[in-house]
């Protein structure tokens, strides 16, 4: 489990570097973000939620049952949209209002 950062989409804002609780993300020579310590990712998704460009995607390693799907988020005021995109391009979306408490 780790993250992938799409260099094309990255706007070099630096927010993901700042917020990663393991400080695992660094800037390359063009100031774009890359994950330097891929295997040290905890999977907290803090970086996804910071990324307004939708450039960061989270995936499960094959060792824990990953099959190539990726997760990313888009924040729209109180709504946090979670997108899961499967390798065949099929997408599932779950929207959570962050003001609503869990039912469980």
């Amino acid at each position: 489990m780790s993250i992938k950062i799409d260099k094309e989409k990255c706007t070099a804002c630096g927010k993901c570097l700042k917020v990663c609780p393991g400080s695992l993300i660094y800037k390359d020579e063009t100031n774009k973000a890359f994950i330097k310590y891929e295997k040290d990712c905890w999977g907290c998704t803090a970086c996804l939620k910071e990324c307004k460009a939708g450039a960061i995607k989270y995936f499960l390693g094959a060792d824990i049952g990953g099959k190539g799907a990726c997760l990313h988020t888009i924040q729209d005021k109180d709504l946090l949209h979670w997108f899961i995109v499967k390798p065949d391009g099929k997408e599932e979306k779950i929207t959570i209002n962050q003001k609503d408490a869990n039912k469980y």
């Binding site: 489990m1 780790s2 393991g22 295997k39 040290d40």
Partner: peptide, 8 residues
């Protein structure tokens, strides 16, 4: 998960 996902 001591391999790729060691921090999971």
């Amino acid at each position: 998960n001591p391999g790729f996902s060691r921090h999971k």
